[in-house]
Simulated scan of single mutants.
Amino acid sequence: MKKSLISLLLALLATPALADKLPVLASFSILADLTREVGGERVDVASLVGPDQDAHVFQPAPQDVKKLAAAKVFVVNGLGFEGWLSRLSKSSGFKGQTVVASQGVKAQDMAEEEHDHHGHDHGHTDPHAWHNPQNVKLYVNNIRAALTQADPAGKDYYSQRASQYSQQLDALDADARQRFAAIPASQRKVLTSHDAFGYLAQRYQIRFLSPQGVSTDAEASAKTVAKLVRQVKAEKIRAVFVENMTDKRLLEQLSREAGVQVGGKLYADALSPANGPAPSYLKLFSHNVNSLSAAMKP
């Protein structure tokens, strides 16, 4: 009993009070979650771009400039993901530490037809490296190093949390590999607005195909539907996740005429709100894997 009490007191002493927490700003919700996982009780993390928000169309406001100016550490993805980054840093006069979470990742090129898709303008580099858990381990290590540099007293604390989280990422990766390996390669095809999933495709040998003839028009024509049906049948696609298809009737028609299962929502660049299916990176990845693997099966 006495030993337990001493351990509790030591843990309380090692945990900083709220006012003493290291102020950290992340560029978007996924990075904010990773930073909280590594930083735990020693950090106070805010995110510029929140859950269910698009970082590609984000425009920093005056309050965002203030947020960055007040932070000691700024966590960004890099690889051209945050096109507004240099403007914000210049406006805020940020003097703290900026950590590029993707440093060390082997970057992939985006397929030619994906350039500028849905407003994504990353040149030839695909910045969505977090869709491979092994890349996220690099993110976590970079974040750990940055937090340790800003808060040397938390070195062991950050190292322990980063190590534990990396083990969870390994387990997540192993589960995904097992799930997709159980599906024949010929069935590992997905029709989707797929500009964000190149790293997932490479890691698990999935083919993400672009929908032909689909635009952001409010209502798709019979010709468009017929073209999609032909594509699905020709490619023998079992999984369809098309963000542009906001009209439920179109999804139902495609499912009926092509005999294909229409999957739910995939989370690419942002977490869901706390009450959604993807409020953390681990849950986001699991949701995507579950949705994709279920839709690929006969």
Results as ranks from 00 to 15, higher is better:
residue 3 K to P: 00
residue 4 S to N: 10
residue 5 L to R: 09
residue 11 A to T: 14
residue 18 L to E: 14
residue 23 P to G: 05
residue 24 V to E: 07
residue 28 F to M: 04
residue 34 L to I: 01
residue 36 R to D: 04
residue 37 E to H: 01
residue 38 V to K: 03
residue 40 G to V: 02
residue 43 V to Y: 13
residue 49 V to R: 00
residue 49 V to K: 09
residue 52 D to F: 05
residue 53 Q to S: 09
residue 55 A to P: 13
residue 59 Q to W: 02
residue 62 P to I: 05
residue 67 K to D: 07
residue 73 V to G: 09
residue 78 G to N: 06
residue 85 L to T: 09
residue 90 K to M: 13
residue 90 K to G: 00
residue 94 F to D: 02
residue 96 G to I: 06
residue 104 G to L: 12
residue 118 H to Q: 13
residue 123 G to P: 11
residue 125 T to Q: 04
residue 135 N to L: 01
residue 138 L to P: 06
residue 144 R to L: 05
residue 146 A to S: 06
residue 149 Q to R: 11
residue 150 A to C: 06
residue 152 P to Q: 08
residue 155 K to L: 05
residue 159 S to T: 10
residue 165 Y to A: 00
residue 171 A to W: 05
residue 171 A to R: 12
residue 173 D to L: 03
residue 176 A to Y: 03
residue 177 R to G: 03
residue 177 R to F: 06
residue 180 F to M: 09
residue 183 I to N: 13
residue 185 A to L: 09
residue 186 S to H: 12
residue 195 D to C: 06
residue 196 A to W: 07
residue 201 A to V: 05
residue 203 R to D: 12
residue 210 S to N: 12
residue 214 V to Y: 05
residue 215 S to V: 08
residue 216 T to F: 02
residue 217 D to C: 07
residue 231 Q to L: 03
residue 236 K to D: 10
residue 248 K to G: 00
residue 251 L to G: 15
residue 252 E to Q: 15
residue 261 Q to A: 15
residue 262 V to R: 07
residue 264 G to I: 09
residue 265 K to W: 05
residue 275 N to Q: 12
residue 275 N to D: 13
residue 280 S to M: 06
residue 282 L to W: 00
residue 283 K to P: 04
residue 284 L to P: 00
residue 285 F to C: 06
residue 288 N to E: 02
residue 293 S to C: 11
residue 297 K to A: 10
residue 298 P to D: 15
